[in-house]
Computed example of a mutant assay.
Amino acid sequence: MTLIKEYNLIENKKAIFWLNMASIPLFIFFLILFIMYTYIFLENKDYSFSLNNGSFIGFILFFLLYFLLIVFHELIHGLFFKVFKKDRKVKFGFKNGFAYATSPHSFYSKGKFIWICLTPFTFITLILLSAVSLGFIPVNLFVNMASLHAAACVGDFYWVFLLSRHPGNILVEDTEQGMTVYLNN
């Protein structure tokens, strides 16, 4: 193996700042996308941006649900770390404004690491789409929760973007600070 690049996201305040900034247009993009989904497929024309449903308790419940969604998101990462490397430990944490799951010193192919990165976004979005489509959750809750979650996936999207810039047969080492990319020769 030949070292190509080390990415230390956890301690890179500049990258964290720009990822947080990138989450704002990402939120707006997904907000519009999910509003359009409810408008076209559910024929809902009554969306209004409200995180609290008009009450303080509604506000607290929304953020409690969102916190649980983030925990579920990280558990999905952890599950897929284990799916691809059963014998490796998985750690969970929160640092510099990011919740994270990691399997330190574990090596994954580029494809497997992309799966690990994108599976929580995909699963949670599909679950929320199904829930609103079947009438289990209100449209406003769906749009707000799905948009916030998608924007919070900015770090996962960033990893995929970085990996897409490395062609060829590479291995990705998951580290507690980020990832290290190696040429698999």
Rank of each mutant, 00 (worst) to 15 (best):
W115H: 06
G111W: 09
K89N: 13
L128H: 06
K95S: 15
T125K: 04
F94A: 14
P104N: 11
F121K: 01
F92R: 11
S130K: 05
F107N: 07
K91Q: 13
H105C: 00
L128R: 06
F123P: 00
S106C: 04
F107M: 09
H105Y: 12
F98G: 10
C117K: 00
N96C: 11
T119H: 00
K110L: 13
I114K: 06
A101W: 01
F98W: 12
F113C: 06
K95I: 14
K112S: 12
S103D: 04
F92Q: 10
I116P: 00
T125F: 08
A101N: 07
F121E: 01
L118C: 09
S106K: 01
K110R: 15
D87M: 02
S103E: 02
A99F: 15
L118P: 02
F107C: 01
A99E: 05
Y100L: 13
K112G: 07
T122D: 00
K95L: 14
K110E: 09
G97V: 12
L118K: 05
K89C: 03
F107Q: 04
A131P: 08
F121A: 08
K112V: 00
K89R: 10
N96E: 14
R88F: 06
I114P: 07
I116R: 01
I116F: 05
L129W: 07
S130H: 02
Y100W: 13
K112I: 01
F98I: 14
H105I: 01
F94D: 10
G93F: 13
I127Q: 08
F123G: 01
Y108F: 15
I116T: 02
I116L: 05
K112F: 08
K95N: 15
L126P: 08
W115K: 07
W115M: 13
I116K: 00
F98C: 13
K95C: 12
F113I: 04
L129M: 14
W115A: 12
F92Y: 15
L129K: 08
T119P: 01
G111R: 14
K95G: 07
K110C: 09
S103Y: 02
A131I: 03
T125R: 04
I116C: 03
A131D: 06
L126H: 04
I127S: 09
F98Q: 12
T125N: 11
T122W: 04
V90H: 08
S106G: 11
Y108R: 01
H105A: 09
S103F: 01
T122E: 00
K112E: 15
F92L: 12
A99Y: 11
V90F: 05
T102F: 02
F94V: 15
T122G: 10
K91M: 10
W115R: 00
R88W: 00
F123C: 10
I124Y: 03
A101S: 14
F98R: 10
S106D: 06
T125W: 07
S130P: 03
K112Q: 15
F98L: 15
S130R: 02
T122R: 00
S130E: 04
A99R: 07
T125G: 08
P120T: 05
K89E: 15
I114H: 06
P120V: 03
Y108H: 06
T102V: 15
G97P: 12
G93E: 14
H105R: 12
K112N: 14
F107I: 07
